[in-house]
Amino acid sequence: MGGLEWIGGLCVVSACAGLGFFKAARLQRRVGALRGLQAGLQVLDTEIAYAATPLPDAFRRIGNTFSSPAAPLFAEVAEQLASRPETGAPDLWETAVRRLAADMALEPPDVEVLLQFGRTLGASDRADQRKHIRVACDRLRVQEEAARQEAATRARMWRSLGVLIGAAIVVLLM
């Protein structure tokens, strides 16, 4: 077996291992994003309850203070609200969620929770807004739990699977 074949084999193994690690990292990222979304919504709840801060200011604050994978969503909505106020918060939220869902590694059910929350965003009085935030937080917590379990069981699987499949391909090719 020549040196070139060794190098080729190594490439195949590392590529497959990389894919596996990537899949595993996505699972972790989803957990982080779901947790970040809850934290953000909790801050929003406080802002609405105690200061009645308008959404653009509240979202900007949340987007700036958190460093979770969810932070860009809040920053994006804040920016859009400032530049296109006539569109209305629900539509801007939906657009931003759809655009950033993949970045946050969110699954369709997670996205559904966010979209449903967005429909009433800013459109009612304080008590009602808080109720919607609480409902969204509860549902996100359920999603986070599921994501965490999935990450615990699947992350290692994806990592080993990547390496093993890479190795299998190399064996078959030789």
Binding site: P54, P85, G88, L121, G122, S124, R126
Partner: peptide, 17 residues
């Protein structure tokens, strides 16, 4: 609604008072 959205910065709850 457009005017009200603009007045409230899309945050009706901030206009309660």
């Amino acid at each position: 609604m457009h005017v009200v959205q603009g007045l409230s910065q899309s945050s009706l709850y901030a206009l309660e008072e």
